[in-house]
């Protein structure tokens, strides 16, 4: 016997499932459409080397996007990721170039720095109950300042340690013997690797489950006897570690830690997540979505550049895409 017989509800739920799947297809679909349009518009676009260029230019923003996706799903936001990325790069630079530690130690120091700062943000958000927007805004400025102080406002170069540059620009997947130019740089492989691990954590582990649960109804999780503060700190720490990866990637690709860079990258990352369907009010989002979102942004910019669209208009178009993506996502929600 059923306690409640509500056919319309069951029907509505099925409908909703359908339209959620459409949304995911929509994001992926627009990416494909973009690729097709650009390919038809210019022969220089759809070429192996350009596709690899696009992937490479997506790597940093994409990894940052993955990091911030966790925080956004909890219903928070992290504005510090751009400058934190730089800070991690600077710390790595200090370890490797100034203190002559092995590359591996420097990389670990960078990742640890990211985790540590993420952890600090997490503590401030959960224990002191400060709004994430404010905490991470403060953190953004703090690490920006620290980057400049520690580096003495000068870039730190990795010229003496060639292996560091190989982290991003070397390649472990070189098929250029079979397909010309088909050598995928490690930065891209690392990006995909981070995405795979993050996807696993988000969908298959307890940490991921609580990420969604907290964004959906934090009080419910607390009343279920879960140590909400500890898990939240964990999520911010993980996010910080992922930002550390982005820091290593940008430093390795530029073969230098540029202390003045970084601000503004957080907005690109957040935009990628939002385009990919991560809800700014929390509780919803996927890693795959964020990755697609990051690709939509970089394909768009790459394509417009190759078409010689004036730069001012490239910026306008990007803005329109962000708003349009959020609008379609909203539309889906309202229907549900």
């Amino acid at each position: 016997m059923s306690t409640i017989a509500e056919k319309p509800v069951a029907a509505a739920s099925a409908q909703k499932f359908g339209s959620s799947a459409t949304q995911k297809l929509l994001a992926f679909g627009s990416l494909v459409v973009m690729l097709i349009i650009f390919s038809l518009a210019t022969p220089n676009f759809f070429r192996v080397d350009n596709m690899i260029s696009i992937m490479l230019s997506t790597a940093v923003a994409g990894v940052l996007g993955i990091g911030v996706t966790f925080v956004i799903i909890t219903g928070g936001i992290d504005l510090s990721i751009g400058t934190l990325m730089t800070f991690c790069a600077v710390i790595t630079g200090v370890f490797i170039t100034n203190w002559h530690f092995p590359v591996l130690i420097g990389v670990l120091a960078g990742l640890l720095t990211g985790s540590l700062i993420g952890c600090c943000s997490g503590v401030l958000v959960s224990k002191l109950k400060l709004p994430p927007f404010i905490v991470t805004l403060g953190m953004m400025l703090i690490v920006k300042g620290l980057s400049l102080v520690i580096s003495g406002t000068k870039p730190i170069y990795f010229v003496d340690t060639e292996s560091f540059n190989l982290i991003a620009m070397g390649t472990m997947l070189d098929l250029s013997a079979i397909i010309p130019d088909f050598a995928i740089p490690n930065a891209v492989l690392i990006f995909f690797g981070v995405a795979a691990i993050a996807g696993f954590i988000l969908n298959k582990t307890v940490l991921g489950r609580y990420t969604f649960a907290m964004g959906s109804n934090e009080e419910a999780v607390r009343l279920s006897g879960v140590n909400v503060d500890a898990w939240k700190i964990g999520i911010y720490t993980l996010s910080g570690a992922i930002v550390g990866v982005a820091g290593i990637l940008i430093a390795s690709r530029l073969n230098s830690a540029q202390p003045a860079l970084g601000q503004g990258y957080e907005l690109d990352a957040i935009a990628a997540a939002v385009i990919g369907g991560v809800s700014l009010s929390g509780g919803e989002g996927t890693i795959l979505g964020t990755v697609i979102g990051a690709f939509i942004m970089s394909v768009l910019i790459n394509g417009l550049r190759i078409l010689n669209v004036p730069q001012e208009w490239q910026t306008v178009v990007t803005g329109l895409i962000v708003i349009f993506a959020v609008y379609t996502d909203n539309l889906r929600r309202r229907k549900g």
């Binding site: 609580y210 649960a213 964004g215 109804n217 419910a220 009343l223 919803e284």
Partner: peptide, 15 residues
């Protein structure tokens, strides 16, 4: 006190 985005089972066994 339920997390709206999670499934019924996920809510029951949270924690």
């Amino acid at each position: 006190n339920l997390a709206q985005h999670l499934t019924a089972a996920q809510n029951i066994f949270i924690g």
